[in-house]
Amino acid sequence: MIRFLKYTWFQVGSFGLLLALVPLVVTNRYYLNVMIFIGIHTLLVVGLNLLMGYAGQISLGHAAFFGLGAYTSGVLTATYKLSPWPAMVIAVVLTVAVALLVGVPALKLTGYYLAMATLGFGIIVYICFKELVWLTGGPSGLVGIPKLSIGTVVLDEPRTYYYLVWAITLGAIVLSLNIVDSRVGRALRAIHDSEPAARASGIYTARLKIWVFVVSAIYASVAGSLYAHFITFISPSSFDFMFSIKLVTMVVVGGMASIWGAVFGAATLTVLPEVLAVFHDFDIVIFGLILMVVMIFMPQGLTRGALDLWEKYRLQRDVAGGSLSGG
């Protein structure tokens, strides 16, 4: 067990070191911005993965929590001139309250019915962002969100913000790795594998599902606040149904129930649209095509799928090599 712990720390440590070195090599603002988005998406996906990958509960409305974080931070700081850090805390508290309000009735449902309930919730929140013009600025968005600062240092350079985002995201990854490999983490996985057996083993599954829903909502809320203070302008379209779907896809593409898979999924699906942008209007066609192909042929996600393909290739090569030497 001690060795395993060290192993995890080794992974986290080397990943952190790698991340710390990136801005020393990459000075291009555009690339740094993409890296910041990857960090924010990773935070979202790691949280969603606790809910979906580990506890096996679908959420098709996670963009709503991301949006709640972003809009609460945005409105409190831009309109009411509150300083960003307390605003972020208030955003988390508000998100927790909403997550409880929705989660308590919704998590009594399973499978498609839970998917539908979270979908409906997500769209209602999106419509509120759009229609509560006096509060959110409506479809044209909310402007004038200040940059974050630590003490007197304003984090207005991509490089400094990069470090902030990834420090928080890395922290969230560590917390998630700890949760997954604990009594709570086992209980979550138990719910996914067999809910009756989990209950018979003394797990209060109903409550645990609500807690993991709340935890994943907190991750999303913090990600939302970081997003708002980064681009300083938010509009409802960033928090629509398609974004919820994109988050689910990041979880699945990376591979369910794998924290590092979540990082990979977030990175892949953040970079992909940027790459596809060269195709202009073709980009969404290609994006849709990729979603379908990956899910049809590698439903366990790209990481697992690629490993399977590699295994297959090696087997075939070995067989071919064997017959060659035999003949």
Partner: peptide, 30 residues
């Protein structure tokens, strides 16, 4: 009804759930 994605040991460890207390916070911060 076993937990298919867990090891043999982990399956038994889940059984200790009612005799242990650690929650999200204490697990997350070890």
């Amino acid at each position: 009804e076993l937990f298919d994605r867990m090891t043999v040991l982990e399956n038994v460890m889940v059984g200790r759930h009612p005799k242990s207390r650690a929650g999200f916070i204490s697990a997350a911060f070890r």
